[in-house]
Computed example of a mutant assay.
Amino acid sequence: MKHTYKVLKWDIELFAAALGQVRVYVIQPLGENWVSVIDYGGTIEKFSPDSVKIAGAYYIRNQFEFRVDVKKDSAGM
């Protein structure tokens, strides 16, 4: 089984994750191939064009990356 992720960039992606109560990870890009995990996940409680609220904390959208797990079965691909 291969494990990967999807970055949530658009309002519709954030909305779908919020509606589906999907666990979202908050990542801060630090440079080429380097990231720092800020929050290991929670559901999206609220979002606006400027911020996303996850587990009671607000994160600025242009400073952080929001990721969800995507699992693909290697036998099916």
Rank of each mutant, 00 (worst) to 15 (best):
Y25P: 00
F66A: 02
V68H: 03
G42V: 05
Q21P: 02
P49A: 13
M77A: 08
K46A: 09
Q28H: 14
Q28G: 07
W34E: 10
S36I: 07
R23F: 00
P29R: 11
M1D: 14
R67I: 01
I27K: 06
E13T: 02
V35C: 11
G20E: 11
D39W: 08
K46W: 00
V68N: 00
V70D: 15
L19Q: 08
K6W: 03
I44S: 01
Q21Y: 11
Y25C: 03
E32K: 09
N33L: 10
I44Q: 01
Y40W: 07
I38G: 05
G42Y: 03
W34H: 13
R67L: 04
E13C: 04
E45H: 11
L19G: 10
L8V: 05
I38Y: 04
S51F: 07
D73F: 07
N62P: 00
A55D: 15
G20S: 15
K2Q: 15
R61I: 02
A75Q: 10
N33A: 11
M1V: 09
V26T: 03
G56F: 01
V7N: 13
Y58S: 09
V70P: 02
G56Y: 02
A17K: 00
N62T: 05
G20Y: 08
A18G: 13
V37A: 04
D73A: 08
P49N: 14
Q63Y: 04
R61S: 01
T43Q: 03
V22H: 06
Q63M: 03
K9T: 09
V35H: 10
I12E: 13
T43K: 04
V7K: 14
S36Q: 12
V26A: 06
H3Y: 14
M1E: 14
W34V: 10
H3M: 15
M77R: 08
A18D: 04
S74C: 14
W34R: 13
K53R: 15
L14N: 00
T4I: 14
R61C: 00
G31W: 03
G56V: 10
A17T: 02
S51W: 09
T43M: 09
D39K: 12
K46I: 11
E32V: 05
V26N: 01
G20I: 06
L30G: 05
E32C: 03
Y25L: 11
W10G: 10
K9R: 08
V70S: 12
F66K: 00
I44Y: 00
E45M: 11
R67H: 12
A16N: 13
I60P: 03
D50C: 01
D50I: 05
R23M: 10
K71I: 10
Q28V: 01
K9Y: 04
D39T: 07
R67K: 14
K71D: 05
S74K: 09
I38S: 07
K9M: 12
I44V: 15
W10V: 08
P29I: 06
K71Y: 07
E45K: 14
Y59I: 03
I38H: 01
N62Q: 10
K6S: 08
D50M: 05
K72E: 11
K9C: 10
Q28P: 04
N62W: 06
S36F: 07
D50T: 15
P49Q: 13
F15R: 13
Y25T: 04
V22P: 01
F15T: 08
K6L: 08
F47L: 03
A55M: 11
D73R: 13
S51D: 13
W10F: 05
H3T: 13
R67S: 06
L30W: 00
F64E: 04
